[in-house]
């Protein structure tokens, strides 16, 4: 017989936990070397950011799901941190191969990159936990109001910046289930069709810059 929705969700959670190293709550030796190779070592900033965002996440999770659920929020954040480090390492290995460089100082000191990567990791963990509630059409004990784009408000991240990491994240983490990939694709479509066009989105500034640089370029004469 097919697994019950609860059983299917439990299996997905177990797989997610199993794919993440138990000591993965800190950078591996390889990732630490990438940090050390930077012109400016990002180790302290990365650690400090995780502490700040972890507190913000737990607080908002408690507000949305109830104070008795704060511990579940902390567990989910812990899993997301392991996924964040794992995917970051895979992304850097792939970039090293592609660009033949080992110094990723600019990328690794970019707060938006780290926040986007963490947001994507959290979204994957949250979606894995809430899979059963989607399939049931109901809500689990934490409620469905925690689903995307809830995480963007919690981490104060623009949808446009979140969008940038999705494809690289999927490429870097081959163990993601089809359901999770489909979920990330749904987030991507939501951003592209609606959220990135809301007032205040950095997309407008970027479009303005592109327009200005295009206007400054001399117009090429038409080829005969």
């Amino acid at each position: 017989p097919p697994p019950t929705p609860i059983r299917a969700a439990m299996t997905s959670i177990q797989m997610l936990r199993g794919d993440l190293p138990s000591n993965g709550d800190r950078p591996s030796a390889t990732l630490a070397t990438y940090f050390k190779n930077c012109t400016v070592d990002p180790t302290q900033d990365v650690q400090k950011r995780l502490e700040t965002l972890g507190q913000a996440f737990s607080q908002k999770f408690g507000e949305a799901a109830g104070p008795h659920c704060v511990v579940y929020g902390q567990q989910r954040f812990g899993l997301a941190v392991r996924l964040y480090y794992k995917v970051m390492e895979a992304m850097l290995k792939s970039e090293e191969k592609r660009l033949s460089v080992q110094n990723f100082s600019k990328l690794l000191n970019d707060a938006t990159f780290h926040t986007s990567l963490l947001a994507c990791s959290l979204e994957v963990v949250m979606a894995t936990y809430e899979e059963s509630s989607f399939k049931n059409g109901g809500g689990d004990q934490t409620g469905t109001n925690l689903c995307f784009p809830w995480i963007l408000n919690v981490l104060n991240l623009s949808a446009f910046d979140f969008y940038k990491v999705i494809e690289s994240f999927i490429k870097a983490e081959p163990t993601l289930s089809k359901d999770i990939i489909k979920h990330l694709e749904t987030c991507e479509n939501l951003i592209m069709e609606r959220i990135a066009w809301r007032t205040g989105s950095p997309l407008f500034e970027l479009l303005q810059q592109e327009h200005a640089s295009a206007a400054a370029e001399p117009v090429e004469t038409t080829a005969s």
């Binding site: 992304m91 592609r98 990328l107 990159f113 494809e167 690289s168």
Partner: peptide, 21 residues
């Protein structure tokens, strides 16, 4: 099918998306 459609070219990666190449 739920296969993800990859849009990035071989010469593009996360470094370019955050303007860091």
């Amino acid at each position: 099918s739920h296969d993800y459609h990859f849009g990035l070219e071989e010469h593009e990666g996360i470094s370019e998306l955050f303007d860091c190449d």
